[in-house]
Design a protein around this nucleic acid. Structure first.
Lengths: 258, 258
DNA sequence: TAGTGGTCTAGACCACACG
DNA sequence: GTGTGGTCTAGACCACTAC
Protein backbone atom coordinates (compact mmCIF):
# COMPACT_ATOMS: atom_id res chain seq x y z
CA UNK A 1 0.00 0.00 0.00
CA UNK A 2 1.23 3.49 -0.87
CA UNK A 3 1.94 5.78 2.04
CA UNK A 4 -0.26 8.84 1.80
CA UNK A 5 1.60 11.03 4.25
CA UNK A 6 -0.57 12.14 7.15
CA UNK A 7 1.26 15.45 7.53
CA UNK A 8 -0.89 17.03 4.80
CA UNK A 9 -4.07 16.56 6.76
CA UNK A 10 -5.51 19.83 5.53
CA UNK A 11 -5.99 18.36 2.09
CA UNK A 12 -8.78 15.94 1.18
CA UNK A 13 -7.62 12.42 0.47
CA UNK A 14 -8.77 12.45 -3.15
CA UNK A 15 -6.64 15.54 -3.79
CA UNK A 16 -3.56 13.94 -2.29
CA UNK A 17 -4.12 10.86 -4.39
CA UNK A 18 -4.75 12.72 -7.64
CA UNK A 19 -1.63 14.80 -7.07
CA UNK A 20 0.45 11.71 -6.49
CA UNK A 21 -0.88 10.21 -9.70
CA UNK A 22 -0.30 13.51 -11.47
CA UNK A 23 3.38 13.54 -10.45
CA UNK A 24 3.80 10.02 -11.75
CA UNK A 25 2.22 10.99 -15.04
CA UNK A 26 4.37 14.08 -15.37
CA UNK A 27 7.44 12.06 -14.47
CA UNK A 28 6.41 9.68 -17.27
CA UNK A 29 6.26 6.85 -14.78
CA UNK A 30 2.91 6.40 -16.46
CA UNK A 31 3.69 7.31 -20.07
CA UNK A 32 1.27 8.84 -22.60
CA UNK A 33 -1.06 6.19 -23.97
CA UNK A 34 -0.30 3.79 -21.15
CA UNK A 35 -3.02 2.27 -18.98
CA UNK A 36 -3.27 3.03 -15.30
CA UNK A 37 -4.19 0.33 -12.76
CA UNK A 38 -7.92 -0.28 -12.49
CA UNK A 39 -10.01 1.67 -10.01
CA UNK A 40 -10.18 -1.41 -7.83
CA UNK A 41 -6.42 -1.89 -7.85
CA UNK A 42 -5.77 1.80 -7.18
CA UNK A 43 -8.17 1.54 -4.26
CA UNK A 44 -6.08 -1.27 -2.80
CA UNK A 45 -2.81 0.50 -3.56
CA UNK A 46 -3.86 3.62 -1.68
CA UNK A 47 -5.98 1.81 0.86
CA UNK A 48 -9.15 3.78 0.13
CA UNK A 49 -12.59 3.08 -1.25
CA UNK A 50 -13.44 3.06 -4.90
CA UNK A 51 -15.50 6.23 -4.48
CA UNK A 52 -12.45 8.13 -3.31
CA UNK A 53 -10.36 6.79 -6.17
CA UNK A 54 -13.08 7.80 -8.60
CA UNK A 55 -13.03 11.34 -7.25
CA UNK A 56 -9.25 11.46 -7.62
CA UNK A 57 -9.51 10.19 -11.18
CA UNK A 58 -12.24 12.76 -11.90
CA UNK A 59 -9.70 15.46 -11.08
CA UNK A 60 -7.20 14.01 -13.52
CA UNK A 61 -9.86 13.72 -16.23
CA UNK A 62 -10.77 17.34 -15.74
CA UNK A 63 -7.15 18.40 -16.03
CA UNK A 64 -6.97 16.47 -19.26
CA UNK A 65 -4.25 14.19 -17.91
CA UNK A 66 -6.14 10.94 -18.45
CA UNK A 67 -9.03 9.72 -20.52
CA UNK A 68 -11.28 6.90 -19.55
CA UNK A 69 -13.19 4.25 -21.52
CA UNK A 70 -15.82 2.08 -20.02
CA UNK A 71 -14.79 -1.53 -20.07
CA UNK A 72 -11.21 -0.71 -21.09
CA UNK A 73 -9.53 1.39 -18.45
CA UNK A 74 -7.87 4.65 -17.60
CA UNK A 75 -5.27 5.92 -20.07
CA UNK A 76 -2.72 8.71 -19.93
CA UNK A 77 -3.66 11.38 -22.46
CA UNK A 78 -1.39 12.07 -25.41
CA UNK A 79 -1.18 15.85 -25.63
CA UNK A 80 -2.32 17.92 -28.61
CA UNK A 81 -2.68 21.61 -29.21
CA UNK A 82 -3.78 23.57 -32.26
CA UNK A 83 -3.41 27.33 -32.19
CA UNK A 84 -5.68 29.72 -34.02
CA UNK A 85 -4.59 33.24 -34.78
CA UNK A 86 -7.05 35.97 -33.90
CA UNK A 87 -5.34 38.45 -36.16
CA UNK A 88 -5.35 39.05 -39.90
CA UNK A 89 -7.02 37.16 -41.31
CA UNK A 90 -9.49 36.10 -38.77
CA UNK A 91 -10.48 32.58 -38.06
CA UNK A 92 -9.65 30.59 -41.11
CA UNK A 93 -10.03 27.43 -39.17
CA UNK A 94 -9.37 25.26 -42.17
CA UNK A 95 -6.17 27.07 -43.12
CA UNK A 96 -4.89 26.89 -39.54
CA UNK A 97 -5.68 23.21 -39.32
CA UNK A 98 -3.99 22.46 -42.60
CA UNK A 99 -0.90 24.45 -41.64
CA UNK A 100 -0.58 22.44 -38.48
CA UNK A 101 -0.87 19.10 -40.20
CA UNK A 102 -4.47 18.21 -39.59
CA UNK A 103 -7.26 17.59 -42.01
CA UNK A 104 -10.13 19.93 -41.25
CA UNK A 105 -13.69 18.77 -41.77
CA UNK A 106 -17.11 20.02 -40.74
CA UNK A 107 -20.33 18.19 -40.09
CA UNK A 108 -23.42 20.37 -40.31
CA UNK A 109 -25.90 19.49 -37.60
CA UNK A 110 -28.53 22.05 -38.44
CA UNK A 111 -29.20 24.68 -41.05
CA UNK A 112 -32.57 26.33 -40.92
CA UNK A 113 -34.41 29.60 -41.16
CA UNK A 114 -35.56 30.82 -37.76
CA UNK A 115 -36.81 33.90 -35.97
CA UNK A 116 -33.67 35.78 -34.87
CA UNK A 117 -32.96 35.79 -31.13
CA UNK A 118 -32.77 39.33 -29.70
CA UNK A 119 -29.00 39.21 -29.32
CA UNK A 120 -28.51 38.12 -32.92
CA UNK A 121 -30.95 40.71 -34.21
CA UNK A 122 -28.87 43.38 -32.52
CA UNK A 123 -25.52 42.05 -33.67
CA UNK A 124 -26.59 41.66 -37.29
CA UNK A 125 -28.36 45.04 -37.16
CA UNK A 126 -31.58 43.61 -38.55
CA UNK A 127 -34.40 46.10 -38.91
CA UNK A 128 -37.21 44.32 -40.74
CA UNK A 129 -39.81 42.63 -38.58
CA UNK A 130 -40.03 39.74 -38.14
CA UNK A 131 -36.28 39.32 -38.54
CA UNK A 132 -35.40 35.93 -39.91
CA UNK A 133 -31.93 34.40 -39.99
CA UNK A 134 -30.25 31.17 -41.01
CA UNK A 135 -29.19 29.23 -37.96
CA UNK A 136 -26.34 26.81 -38.43
CA UNK A 137 -24.75 24.41 -36.00
CA UNK A 138 -21.77 22.37 -37.01
CA UNK A 139 -19.04 20.26 -35.55
CA UNK A 140 -15.45 20.96 -36.59
CA UNK A 141 -13.07 18.02 -36.77
CA UNK A 142 -9.29 17.85 -36.82
CA UNK A 143 -8.71 14.54 -38.57
CA UNK A 144 -11.28 12.44 -36.74
CA UNK A 145 -11.39 14.30 -33.45
CA UNK A 146 -14.25 16.71 -32.84
CA UNK A 147 -12.57 19.85 -31.56
CA UNK A 148 -15.24 22.52 -31.76
CA UNK A 149 -18.92 23.26 -32.07
CA UNK A 150 -19.81 26.34 -34.07
CA UNK A 151 -23.14 28.13 -33.90
CA UNK A 152 -23.58 30.79 -36.58
CA UNK A 153 -26.33 33.12 -37.70
CA UNK A 154 -26.58 34.58 -41.21
CA UNK A 155 -28.97 37.26 -42.46
CA UNK A 156 -31.81 35.82 -44.54
CA UNK A 157 -30.65 38.03 -47.39
CA UNK A 158 -27.54 36.03 -48.24
CA UNK A 159 -27.21 34.63 -51.73
CA UNK A 160 -29.05 31.35 -52.41
CA UNK A 161 -25.85 29.75 -53.67
CA UNK A 162 -24.31 30.44 -50.28
CA UNK A 163 -27.08 28.58 -48.52
CA UNK A 164 -25.91 25.40 -50.19
CA UNK A 165 -22.20 26.06 -49.90
CA UNK A 166 -22.27 26.98 -46.23
CA UNK A 167 -23.54 23.55 -45.35
CA UNK A 168 -20.53 21.89 -46.92
CA UNK A 169 -17.49 23.71 -45.61
CA UNK A 170 -15.89 26.23 -43.32
CA UNK A 171 -17.78 29.48 -42.88
CA UNK A 172 -15.12 32.07 -43.54
CA UNK A 173 -13.52 30.34 -46.49
CA UNK A 174 -16.90 29.73 -48.07
CA UNK A 175 -17.94 33.34 -47.66
CA UNK A 176 -14.71 34.62 -49.16
CA UNK A 177 -14.93 32.22 -52.10
CA UNK A 178 -18.38 33.56 -52.84
CA UNK A 179 -17.17 37.12 -52.92
CA UNK A 180 -18.14 38.15 -49.41
CA UNK A 181 -15.18 40.18 -48.18
CA UNK A 182 -14.94 40.08 -44.43
CA UNK A 183 -12.74 42.92 -43.29
CA UNK A 184 -13.47 43.41 -39.62
CA UNK A 185 -14.73 41.57 -36.58
CA UNK A 186 -15.59 42.09 -32.97
CA UNK A 187 -14.73 39.13 -30.80
CA UNK A 188 -15.01 38.15 -27.17
CA UNK A 189 -13.19 35.24 -25.62
CA UNK A 190 -14.63 33.42 -22.71
CA UNK A 191 -14.62 30.01 -21.11
CA UNK A 192 -17.33 27.72 -19.82
CA UNK A 193 -17.46 24.16 -18.56
CA UNK A 194 -18.99 21.64 -20.94
CA UNK A 195 -22.63 20.97 -20.18
CA UNK A 196 -23.97 17.46 -20.62
CA UNK A 197 -25.14 18.19 -24.15
CA UNK A 198 -21.84 19.77 -25.18
CA UNK A 199 -19.83 17.01 -23.57
CA UNK A 200 -21.66 14.50 -25.75
CA UNK A 201 -21.30 16.55 -28.93
CA UNK A 202 -17.56 17.05 -28.47
CA UNK A 203 -16.76 13.72 -26.82
CA UNK A 204 -15.28 15.32 -23.73
CA UNK A 205 -15.93 14.77 -20.04
CA UNK A 206 -18.67 16.75 -18.38
CA UNK A 207 -17.26 20.04 -17.10
CA UNK A 208 -14.15 20.18 -19.26
CA UNK A 209 -13.36 23.84 -20.01
CA UNK A 210 -14.39 25.03 -23.44
CA UNK A 211 -13.09 28.20 -25.06
CA UNK A 212 -15.92 30.36 -26.30
CA UNK A 213 -15.05 32.58 -29.26
CA UNK A 214 -17.96 35.00 -29.79
CA UNK A 215 -17.82 36.94 -33.02
CA UNK A 216 -19.54 39.37 -35.30
CA UNK A 217 -17.86 39.69 -38.68
CA UNK A 218 -18.39 42.57 -41.05
CA UNK A 219 -18.07 43.05 -44.79
CA UNK A 220 -17.66 46.19 -46.83
CA UNK A 221 -18.78 49.25 -44.95
CA UNK A 222 -19.50 47.78 -41.52
CA UNK A 223 -22.23 45.54 -42.81
CA UNK A 224 -22.63 42.53 -40.47
CA UNK A 225 -22.31 39.31 -42.45
CA UNK A 226 -22.34 36.68 -39.77
CA UNK A 227 -22.30 36.31 -36.02
CA UNK A 228 -22.15 33.42 -33.65
CA UNK A 229 -19.77 31.57 -31.42
CA UNK A 230 -17.29 28.76 -31.62
CA UNK A 231 -17.00 26.50 -28.60
CA UNK A 232 -13.70 24.68 -28.75
CA UNK A 233 -12.06 22.05 -26.60
CA UNK A 234 -9.41 23.65 -24.43
CA UNK A 235 -7.30 20.49 -24.57
CA UNK A 236 -6.94 20.87 -28.35
CA UNK A 237 -7.15 24.58 -29.05
CA UNK A 238 -5.81 27.98 -28.08
CA UNK A 239 -5.95 31.46 -29.60
CA UNK A 240 -2.99 33.68 -30.33
CA UNK A 241 -2.55 37.32 -31.22
CA UNK A 242 0.20 39.83 -31.77
CA UNK A 243 -0.59 43.25 -30.46
CA UNK A 244 0.95 46.55 -31.47
CA UNK A 245 0.24 49.42 -29.14
CA UNK A 246 -0.13 52.86 -30.65
CA UNK A 247 1.59 55.53 -28.61
CA UNK A 248 -1.52 57.66 -28.36
CA UNK A 249 -3.44 54.89 -26.69
CA UNK A 250 -1.44 55.11 -23.53
CA UNK A 251 -3.66 58.02 -22.52
CA UNK A 252 -6.28 55.88 -20.82
CA UNK A 253 -3.92 55.35 -17.94
CA UNK A 254 -5.17 58.60 -16.53
CA UNK A 255 -3.37 60.66 -13.95
CA UNK A 256 -5.19 59.56 -10.84
CA UNK A 257 -2.91 57.32 -8.90
CA UNK A 258 -4.30 54.99 -6.32
CA UNK B 1 -41.72 14.12 -4.60
CA UNK B 2 -40.76 15.61 -7.97
CA UNK B 3 -41.44 13.44 -11.00
CA UNK B 4 -38.19 12.79 -12.81
CA UNK B 5 -39.65 11.55 -16.08
CA UNK B 6 -38.52 8.05 -16.94
CA UNK B 7 -38.65 8.72 -20.67
CA UNK B 8 -35.13 10.19 -20.59
CA UNK B 9 -33.53 6.99 -19.46
CA UNK B 10 -30.42 7.57 -21.52
CA UNK B 11 -29.39 10.35 -19.19
CA UNK B 12 -27.90 9.78 -15.74
CA UNK B 13 -30.13 10.78 -12.88
CA UNK B 14 -27.80 13.47 -11.59
CA UNK B 15 -27.89 15.16 -15.01
CA UNK B 16 -31.67 15.14 -15.12
CA UNK B 17 -31.79 16.63 -11.66
CA UNK B 18 -29.20 19.31 -12.30
CA UNK B 19 -30.99 20.32 -15.50
CA UNK B 20 -34.29 20.60 -13.68
CA UNK B 21 -32.67 22.79 -11.06
CA UNK B 22 -30.95 24.78 -13.80
CA UNK B 23 -34.29 25.55 -15.48
CA UNK B 24 -35.72 26.72 -12.18
CA UNK B 25 -32.73 28.99 -11.65
CA UNK B 26 -32.92 30.40 -15.17
CA UNK B 27 -36.66 30.90 -14.75
CA UNK B 28 -35.82 32.82 -11.55
CA UNK B 29 -37.94 30.39 -9.57
CA UNK B 30 -34.80 30.37 -7.49
CA UNK B 31 -33.63 33.96 -7.73
CA UNK B 32 -30.01 35.18 -7.56
CA UNK B 33 -28.81 35.24 -3.98
CA UNK B 34 -31.59 32.97 -2.80
CA UNK B 35 -30.92 29.75 -0.91
CA UNK B 36 -31.80 26.38 -2.38
CA UNK B 37 -33.25 23.59 -0.23
CA UNK B 38 -30.62 21.63 1.68
CA UNK B 39 -29.02 18.55 0.15
CA UNK B 40 -31.11 16.41 2.46
CA UNK B 41 -34.36 18.11 1.42
CA UNK B 42 -33.47 17.97 -2.27
CA UNK B 43 -32.79 14.27 -1.82
CA UNK B 44 -36.28 13.79 -0.45
CA UNK B 45 -37.85 16.01 -3.11
CA UNK B 46 -36.32 14.00 -5.94
CA UNK B 47 -36.39 10.69 -4.12
CA UNK B 48 -32.68 10.01 -4.48
CA UNK B 49 -29.69 9.64 -2.21
CA UNK B 50 -27.61 12.52 -1.00
CA UNK B 51 -24.68 11.35 -3.13
CA UNK B 52 -26.73 11.78 -6.29
CA UNK B 53 -27.91 15.22 -5.22
CA UNK B 54 -24.33 16.19 -4.49
CA UNK B 55 -23.30 15.16 -7.98
CA UNK B 56 -26.15 17.21 -9.45
CA UNK B 57 -25.13 20.21 -7.34
CA UNK B 58 -21.51 19.73 -8.43
CA UNK B 59 -22.65 20.26 -12.02
CA UNK B 60 -24.37 23.50 -11.09
CA UNK B 61 -21.33 24.70 -9.16
CA UNK B 62 -19.14 24.02 -12.16
CA UNK B 63 -21.45 25.95 -14.43
CA UNK B 64 -21.24 28.84 -12.01
CA UNK B 65 -24.98 28.75 -11.34
CA UNK B 66 -24.70 28.25 -7.60
CA UNK B 67 -22.12 28.73 -4.90
CA UNK B 68 -21.95 26.73 -1.75
CA UNK B 69 -20.85 27.49 1.81
CA UNK B 70 -20.26 24.86 4.39
CA UNK B 71 -22.70 25.22 7.23
CA UNK B 72 -24.84 27.75 5.39
CA UNK B 73 -26.27 26.28 2.25
CA UNK B 74 -26.47 26.43 -1.52
CA UNK B 75 -27.04 29.85 -3.05
CA UNK B 76 -27.90 31.00 -6.54
CA UNK B 77 -24.95 32.95 -7.95
CA UNK B 78 -25.34 36.63 -8.71
CA UNK B 79 -23.73 37.10 -12.11
CA UNK B 80 -20.71 39.33 -12.79
CA UNK B 81 -18.53 39.86 -15.78
CA UNK B 82 -15.59 42.17 -16.36
CA UNK B 83 -14.22 42.46 -19.87
CA UNK B 84 -10.61 43.19 -20.69
CA UNK B 85 -9.60 44.52 -24.05
CA UNK B 86 -6.73 42.76 -25.75
CA UNK B 87 -6.14 45.65 -28.09
CA UNK B 88 -4.42 49.00 -27.71
CA UNK B 89 -3.38 49.41 -25.02
CA UNK B 90 -2.83 45.99 -23.72
CA UNK B 91 -3.84 44.72 -20.37
CA UNK B 92 -4.29 47.73 -18.20
CA UNK B 93 -6.16 45.68 -15.72
CA UNK B 94 -6.52 48.54 -13.31
CA UNK B 95 -7.92 50.94 -15.90
CA UNK B 96 -10.39 48.31 -17.12
CA UNK B 97 -11.53 47.58 -13.60
CA UNK B 98 -11.96 51.24 -12.76
CA UNK B 99 -13.91 51.87 -15.96
CA UNK B 100 -16.28 49.10 -15.06
CA UNK B 101 -16.91 50.34 -11.56
CA UNK B 102 -14.65 48.12 -9.53
CA UNK B 103 -11.75 48.98 -7.33
CA UNK B 104 -8.67 47.13 -8.49
CA UNK B 105 -6.12 45.92 -5.98
CA UNK B 106 -3.20 43.53 -6.02
CA UNK B 107 -1.67 41.39 -3.30
CA UNK B 108 1.88 40.31 -4.01
CA UNK B 109 2.44 36.72 -2.93
CA UNK B 110 6.04 36.42 -4.00
CA UNK B 111 8.77 38.56 -5.46
CA UNK B 112 12.19 37.00 -5.66
CA UNK B 113 15.22 36.53 -7.82
CA UNK B 114 15.40 33.05 -9.30
CA UNK B 115 17.08 31.02 -12.00
CA UNK B 116 14.99 31.55 -15.14
CA UNK B 117 12.99 28.56 -16.35
CA UNK B 118 13.88 27.56 -19.91
CA UNK B 119 10.64 28.91 -21.35
CA UNK B 120 11.15 32.28 -19.67
CA UNK B 121 14.76 32.45 -20.73
CA UNK B 122 13.65 32.03 -24.33
CA UNK B 123 10.80 34.50 -24.15
CA UNK B 124 12.87 37.21 -22.50
CA UNK B 125 15.78 36.46 -24.87
CA UNK B 126 18.25 36.17 -22.02
CA UNK B 127 21.78 35.36 -23.05
CA UNK B 128 23.93 35.61 -19.96
CA UNK B 129 24.45 32.42 -17.98
CA UNK B 130 23.14 31.78 -15.43
CA UNK B 131 20.10 33.83 -16.39
CA UNK B 132 18.39 35.29 -13.37
CA UNK B 133 14.94 36.85 -13.34
CA UNK B 134 12.54 38.35 -10.86
CA UNK B 135 9.63 36.03 -10.27
CA UNK B 136 6.43 37.62 -9.08
CA UNK B 137 3.13 36.06 -8.15
CA UNK B 138 0.19 38.21 -7.24
CA UNK B 139 -3.54 38.04 -6.76
CA UNK B 140 -5.71 40.63 -8.50
CA UNK B 141 -8.88 41.71 -6.75
CA UNK B 142 -11.99 43.47 -8.04
CA UNK B 143 -13.27 45.13 -4.89
CA UNK B 144 -12.85 42.23 -2.47
CA UNK B 145 -13.18 39.35 -4.89
CA UNK B 146 -10.02 37.62 -6.09
CA UNK B 147 -10.46 37.39 -9.86
CA UNK B 148 -7.03 36.50 -11.16
CA UNK B 149 -3.60 35.15 -10.32
CA UNK B 150 -0.73 36.67 -12.23
CA UNK B 151 2.70 35.10 -12.60
CA UNK B 152 5.29 37.41 -14.14
CA UNK B 153 8.99 37.28 -14.89
CA UNK B 154 11.18 40.36 -15.26
CA UNK B 155 14.80 40.54 -16.42
CA UNK B 156 17.23 41.03 -13.54
CA UNK B 157 18.40 44.20 -15.24
CA UNK B 158 15.31 46.26 -14.45
CA UNK B 159 15.76 49.46 -12.48
CA UNK B 160 16.01 49.08 -8.69
CA UNK B 161 13.19 51.58 -8.18
CA UNK B 162 10.97 49.27 -10.21
CA UNK B 163 11.67 46.36 -7.92
CA UNK B 164 9.95 48.22 -5.13
CA UNK B 165 7.14 49.67 -7.22
CA UNK B 166 6.20 46.42 -8.92
CA UNK B 167 5.34 44.89 -5.58
CA UNK B 168 2.77 47.55 -4.86
CA UNK B 169 0.63 47.86 -7.97
CA UNK B 170 -0.38 46.65 -11.40
CA UNK B 171 2.44 45.57 -13.66
CA UNK B 172 1.72 47.50 -16.83
CA UNK B 173 0.77 50.77 -15.18
CA UNK B 174 3.81 50.60 -12.96
CA UNK B 175 6.13 49.96 -15.88
CA UNK B 176 4.69 52.81 -17.88
CA UNK B 177 4.89 55.21 -14.94
CA UNK B 178 8.57 54.38 -14.64
CA UNK B 179 9.22 55.17 -18.25
CA UNK B 180 9.13 51.66 -19.66
CA UNK B 181 7.20 52.01 -22.92
CA UNK B 182 5.52 48.77 -23.82
CA UNK B 183 4.59 48.89 -27.47
CA UNK B 184 3.98 45.31 -28.53
CA UNK B 185 3.02 41.96 -27.15
CA UNK B 186 2.54 38.36 -28.16
CA UNK B 187 -0.31 36.68 -26.38
CA UNK B 188 -1.92 33.27 -26.27
CA UNK B 189 -5.30 32.57 -24.76
CA UNK B 190 -6.08 29.24 -23.29
CA UNK B 191 -8.24 27.66 -20.66
CA UNK B 192 -7.58 25.16 -17.88
CA UNK B 193 -9.58 23.82 -14.97
CA UNK B 194 -8.57 25.12 -11.55
CA UNK B 195 -6.23 22.77 -9.75
CA UNK B 196 -6.57 22.39 -6.00
CA UNK B 197 -3.94 25.04 -5.35
CA UNK B 198 -5.48 27.52 -7.77
CA UNK B 199 -8.96 26.87 -6.47
CA UNK B 200 -7.78 27.86 -3.01
CA UNK B 201 -5.93 30.95 -4.19
CA UNK B 202 -8.89 32.25 -6.19
CA UNK B 203 -11.67 30.98 -3.92
CA UNK B 204 -13.33 28.98 -6.67
CA UNK B 205 -14.48 25.38 -6.81
CA UNK B 206 -12.01 22.76 -7.95
CA UNK B 207 -12.16 22.41 -11.72
CA UNK B 208 -13.78 25.75 -12.51
CA UNK B 209 -12.47 26.94 -15.89
CA UNK B 210 -9.77 29.59 -15.73
CA UNK B 211 -8.77 31.77 -18.67
CA UNK B 212 -5.04 31.70 -19.21
CA UNK B 213 -3.58 34.82 -20.79
CA UNK B 214 0.03 34.11 -21.71
CA UNK B 215 2.03 37.15 -22.70
CA UNK B 216 5.39 38.51 -23.65
CA UNK B 217 5.48 42.32 -23.76
CA UNK B 218 8.13 44.33 -25.55
CA UNK B 219 9.51 47.82 -25.19
CA UNK B 220 11.39 49.99 -27.64
CA UNK B 221 12.96 47.95 -30.38
CA UNK B 222 11.54 44.50 -29.65
CA UNK B 223 13.22 44.31 -26.29
CA UNK B 224 11.30 41.89 -24.03
CA UNK B 225 10.36 43.65 -20.81
CA UNK B 226 8.17 41.11 -19.10
CA UNK B 227 6.53 37.77 -19.69
CA UNK B 228 4.18 35.59 -17.77
CA UNK B 229 0.58 34.59 -17.55
CA UNK B 230 -2.61 35.76 -15.95
CA UNK B 231 -5.03 33.08 -14.79
CA UNK B 232 -8.44 34.62 -14.39
CA UNK B 233 -11.78 33.31 -13.20
CA UNK B 234 -14.02 32.65 -16.18
CA UNK B 235 -17.09 33.59 -14.14
CA UNK B 236 -15.77 37.13 -13.70
CA UNK B 237 -13.66 37.84 -16.74
CA UNK B 238 -13.57 37.75 -20.51
CA UNK B 239 -11.31 39.20 -23.20
CA UNK B 240 -12.41 41.29 -26.14
CA UNK B 241 -10.77 42.46 -29.34
CA UNK B 242 -11.65 44.32 -32.49
CA UNK B 243 -9.97 42.97 -35.55
CA UNK B 244 -9.33 44.73 -38.83
CA UNK B 245 -8.34 42.48 -41.69
CA UNK B 246 -5.91 43.85 -44.22
CA UNK B 247 -6.90 42.95 -47.75
CA UNK B 248 -3.55 41.44 -48.54
CA UNK B 249 -3.89 38.93 -45.77
CA UNK B 250 -6.65 37.05 -47.48
CA UNK B 251 -3.97 35.31 -49.50
CA UNK B 252 -3.47 32.46 -47.05
CA UNK B 253 -6.72 30.93 -48.17
CA UNK B 254 -4.82 29.29 -50.95
CA UNK B 255 -6.39 27.93 -54.07
CA UNK B 256 -6.75 24.29 -53.15
CA UNK B 257 -10.37 23.59 -52.52
CA UNK B 258 -11.43 20.63 -50.50
C1' DT C 1 -17.08 -15.06 -18.69
C1' DA C 2 -14.24 -11.95 -16.30
C1' DG C 3 -12.77 -7.39 -15.80
C1' DT C 4 -13.53 -2.60 -16.41
C1' DG C 5 -15.71 1.84 -15.64
C1' DG C 6 -20.72 4.29 -14.72
C1' DT C 7 -24.27 4.95 -11.54
C1' DC C 8 -26.54 4.90 -7.27
C1' DT C 9 -27.59 3.75 -2.34
C1' DA C 10 -27.45 4.10 2.85
C1' DG C 11 -24.98 5.44 6.31
C1' DA C 12 -21.01 7.29 8.98
C1' DC C 13 -18.13 11.01 10.85
C1' DC C 14 -16.26 15.68 10.49
C1' DA C 15 -16.02 20.97 10.18
C1' DC C 16 -18.42 25.05 10.00
C1' DA C 17 -22.38 28.52 10.81
C1' DC C 18 -25.94 30.21 13.53
C1' DG C 19 -28.79 30.91 17.36
C1' DG D 1 -27.14 22.07 19.98
C1' DT D 2 -29.00 21.73 15.42
C1' DG D 3 -28.52 21.99 10.68
C1' DT D 4 -25.60 22.60 6.91
C1' DG D 5 -22.16 21.05 3.53
C1' DG D 6 -17.40 18.02 3.05
C1' DT D 7 -15.47 13.60 3.04
C1' DC D 8 -15.33 8.78 2.95
C1' DT D 9 -16.89 3.85 3.20
C1' DA D 10 -18.87 -0.67 1.60
C1' DG D 11 -21.54 -2.58 -1.38
C1' DA D 12 -24.93 -3.08 -5.18
C1' DC D 13 -26.31 -3.32 -10.09
C1' DC D 14 -25.53 -2.04 -14.88
C1' DA D 15 -23.14 -1.48 -19.57
C1' DC D 16 -19.32 -2.06 -22.17
C1' DT D 17 -14.86 -4.49 -23.70
C1' DA D 18 -12.04 -8.16 -24.41
C1' DC D 19 -10.88 -12.96 -24.67
Amino acid sequence: MVSIGSDVDRQPLHITISEQLKSKIEAREYAPGERLPSEFDLGEMFGVSRTTIRKAIANLIQQGLVTVSQGKGIFVTEPHKISFSMANPLMYFDAALRQQGYQGRVKSLRFQLVQAPAEVERQLQLTSQPAQVYWQEKIIYADDTPIALDVSYFPKAIAPTLVEALQQGFTYSTLVRHGVRLNAAKVRLDSIPATYELSEALAVPLGMPLLVFNYVAYQGDRQPAVCGRTLSRSDWTCYTAEIEVAKADLSCLGDDLD
